[in-house]
Design a protein around this nucleic acid. Structure first.
Lengths: 353, 353
DNA sequence: CTGAAAGCGCTAACAC
DNA sequence: GTGTTAGCGCTTTCAG
């Protein structure tokens, strides 16, 4: 009593060996290389393991094999419902491999990211999926320099030399904006995500291209920063929607912001979509709820995250993998989900929309 | 070339000692006990650390200190927006302590839970927060037997002997149901969560008590299983809402299910709240969006998760903590957030509602 | 196929 | 204060 912790004892490989009447190495073999051990001894060992409730220490094993069986996932905002789906896919695959997931929430503060990076290095994760990359970042270098595999997911910094998996953000932005234009809108606002973050920059590029293609001059006062979050978006959209020359439509760089715009519009007495059409990006689960019916760009994050995880494990398990030397970009297509908030589906003119 | 990984080398404490011209122990002191080292040597060591980019190995340290600086968080459904807020609070506190978070998704399958438990034991987490406890579970015993601290959070199994932090689920269920009754409803359905899970059972108890107090006989055909998920809830509510004697109100054991009911109601041509009043539980972020205005029971999960984490660290850092010997329950109050889906706020009769 | 010895990187006793 | 030694639990050489 008193010190409870020291009362407990986890049995070691040595104790199992003693009990089974074999040497340490044989236990190790049974655990890691069962095929190699004679069936009869294996049985005996297995029984000893069960009796002593033996669990090999990942730390001790990791020290010698240099694999801690840990992978890390870096994201910037856990409360954005787009992320959990990704994380779910990652944990699932990791667990199948006997790996656990270290979850890191970097927020928008780069100090946090460094702190997380240090912890990841100390824990010696085998690989890292970074879905929170800011515009400028040397995180990938820091990690790869230490032999930790990295896959960039969703976001990418300006310069990078690791594998990247993402979606066609520009295409999505273009599709969303074009749709709004076809609906007859010309004063279309764009709500940016975090400043400089690739997903937002690329979606904005698509937005601008769609405007340009339709001969619409972008009104820079209609392009505002929502930071990918509810609070900031509420602030900026309150301003924007109370202007005399308020936009008739909004394309938000993600669904969370689109929802915040809608919330503010209603609060201000505007009807959606009659007074304000809104399109988002991500297609989070709630978007398809009929009480909302958010028109949005679907990017199939869950599947994507699975791809990223598989790639990461490929890289970890096969150091000679060609992609370790020559990283590639994989950009997946997106699709516009037309629902209610943009004014509902419309039959396009058969040509020259 | 070839084996990329082996090209990389993380410097060790020994190398730092060599470079700084001091012994190993001094490095260790500078890292873990800076105050004890003479300022001049400390400076020298710090510089050597910086030059070599030294990061102590958590595994090696953990082997001797028996602390891997890892805590685990178990949850059952990542896509339920109620969880991310909790996880965010936990990661934040953990990181402040230099701990990382192992995230485990147990799903509804108890095999998954066992598998996760084994991995947690192998990784030798210092503590675990379980928010996914099913009705029957020996997980807490398995863990505490190995000296791993456990805090039950949100859900609790039928029998347990560790600390529990949760909310007044019965009170919440009672408040939600009472409110509906005061609105004039008497055919009120209840959508259960996972079968046997404490939160659902307790909320149902509150529901039944409210009915009983108002002389309403519970119609068992109005009490159905939604499994805390969208898919299952859609199925059961489609059935229920197409019955001749369909309910005029629904209390769902969480917001995700409430939202699914609403979705299905609209799909079936019902208006919310005119044709169907709906109340949920959790107050997830989207609930307060004006496009939805979900009436729900607020439970302040984020704050709660912080409490659970603090308690866990207390237990870890202070093995003689009285709560290690005599665990306690902490039940926090909830509050009904009256919004739109129940028919909006109503002024109650001043007495004898 | 199995046994003995070395060592992964670190901390904690001790001596100096 | 600082240096030396042992050892945490495991895998991996090497002999047998």
């Amino acid at each position: 009593m008193g010190n409870t912790a020291s009362r407990h004892h986890n049995s070691t490989i040595k104790e199992v060996a003693l009990r089974a009447g074999v040497c340490i190495k044989t236990i190790s073999n049974v655990v890691n290389n069962p095929g190699i051990v004679k069936a009869s001894t294996r049985e005996r060992v297995l029984q000893a393991i069960a009796e002593l409730d033996y669990r090999p220490s990942a730390a001790a094993r990791g020290m010698v094999t240099r694999s801690r069986r840990l992978i890390a996932f870096l994201l910037s905002d856990f409360t954005n419902p787009a992320y959990p789906e990704m994380v779910e896919a990652v944990t699932e695959l990791a667990r199948q491999k006997g790996f656990m997931l270290l979850l890191c929430n970097t927020g928008r503060n780069s100090g946090e990211e460094d702190r997380n990076l240090n912890l990841i290095i100390e824990q010696q994760a085998d690989g890292v999926i970074i879905s929170s990359a800011p515009a400028e970042s040397t995180s990938t270098d820091v990690l790869t320099k230490r032999g930790i595999r990295v896959v960039l997911f969703n976001r990418r910094p300006r310069n990078y030399s690791v594998n990247y998996i993402g979606v066609d953000n520009e295409g999505g932005g273009h599709a969303a904006t074009s749709h709004l234009i076809q609906k007859g809108h010309s004063r279309i606002a764009f709500i940016r995500g975090d400043v400089g973050v690739s997903t937002s920059v690329e979606r904005e590029r698509g937005y601008r291209r769609a405007l340009a293609e339709n001969g619409i001059v972008a009104d820079e006062s209609l392009i505002v920063l929502g930071d990918y979050r509810t609070e900031e978006t509420s602030r900026v959209s309150a301003e924007m929607l109370t202007r005399i020359d308020r936009p008739s439509a909004v394309f938000a760089a993600n669904d969370v912001m689109a929802l915040a715009v809608i919330d503010m519009a209603i609060r201000l007495g505007l009807r959606v979509p009659e007074d304000l059409a809104v399109v988002g990006f991500d297609d989070i689960a709630i978007a398809s709820n009929r009480m909302i019916g958010l028109t949005t760009v679907r990017s199939n994050l869950r599947e994507l995250a699975g791809e990223a995880t598989k790639l990461l494990f490929d890289l970890i398990e096969n150091p000679d993998h060609p992609l370790n030397e020559n990283p590639e970009d994989r950009i997946l297509p997106v699709s516009l989900q037309v629902r209610h908030t943009c004014g509902g589906p419309v039959v396009l003119d058969s040509k020259e929309g």
